[in-house]
């Protein structure tokens, strides 16, 4: 978000949600009204010797290449900026783009809507606002309905050269991640796994001891409580302009959601 414009027309920014300061230098951003600006960075010839540390946001400026009056005319304090990088295909079925977190979840919902074919559930699709800040969209969205169950569809961590441990075993292309968490309904997670096996949908397991950090956490405590589960598309480089997913995982996430709904879910029997 734009928090200031100085007399030379350089723009001050602050983060909305978990912005990674390490990926900002020399990065092109774009405003809602289509203005492109580059985050200022020192030429190496004039280096301050601080290559090892990301420039803190408080010292970060954006250059729109316009005179100050033009900047002030076309942009206002409070306007928001996003990464300008456009979606691109990599090898195989890999896709890289900013905002795959959580637009691929949105896409999975749109696809699932095409595949849902049952009266067993009344299914409401919630395209929530403000998840990255306080999850407020999911809180009010869930409250508006009398829900029996909910599945939050987000992205989670896949293996990459600098990710090890539990997430080192999650791979792009090996299917949606079914979350097992202390705040999610275990029976739903279990049923999702069974449905995946039954329908030959590839899947991976994501055990999370605490809260999931997704809309699921908020929806689960809506009103007097909702049985909830979380399904995630595996992703690399979260919260950068170069997030990477396997497209097959989006399609399979949609298939898994639809299969769970079409079979009546975890509580039929």
């Amino acid at each position: 978000m734009i928090t200031g414009i100085n007399d030379e027309g350089f723009v001050k920014i602050d983060k909305v949600g978990g912005v990674d300061a390490r990926v900002l230098q020399d990065t092109v951003l774009v405003s809602e009204n289509g203005l492109y600006g580059t985050v200022c960075c020192l030429p190496p010839h004039l280096t301050d010797g601080n290559e090892d540390k990301a420039t803190p946001l408080a010292k970060t400026w954006v250059d729109f290449g316009l005179p100050a009056e033009e900047v002030k005319r076309q942009l206002r304090l409070g306007d928001t900026l996003t990464f300008a990088a456009k979606p691109q295909k990599l090898l195989g079925d890999k896709i890289t783009s900013p905002a795959l977190d959580d637009r691929c979840g949105v896409a999975a919902l749109l696809r699932a809507a095409e595949l849902i074919d049952t009266e067993a559930y009344k299914v409401i699709l919630l395209f929530s606002a403000q998840e990255e800040t306080y999850g407020t969209g999911a809180k009010t969205g869930a409250f508006a309905f009398d829900l029996d169950e909910a599945v939050a569809v987000d992205v989670s961590f896949a293996s990459q050269p600098d990710v090890s441990g539990q997430y080192g075993k999650i791979e792009l292309g090996k299917g949606p991640m079914i979350c097992f968490s202390s705040v999610m309904d275990r029976r739903m997670s279990q049923k999702l796994t069974e449905v995946a096996k039954e329908k030959n949908i590839p899947y991976q397991l994501e055990p999370i001891a605490g809260a999931t950090g997704t809309n699921g956490d908020h929806i689960a405590v809506s009103k007097s409580g909702v049985k909830a589960a979380v399904v995630s598309v595996p992703q690399r480089y979260m919260h950068t302009p170069c997030e990477v997913i396997s497209f097959a995982d989006v399609e399979n996430t949609a298939r898994l959601l639809a299969a769970y709904i079409n079979c009546g879910g975890a509580f039929r029997d």
């Binding site: 909305v16 949600g17 928001t80 979606p87 783009s97 896409a107 749109l110 809507a113 800040t133």
Partner: peptide, 30 residues
Amino acid sequence: LESVLFELCSAHGVSGSESAVFEVVKKHLK
């Protein structure tokens, strides 16, 4: 699905300013 995903990713949708993304969603829901 792929082109819908690309369209979604190209839309401006910073927390609190999601209207452009909603427009894409409306386009593709029956």
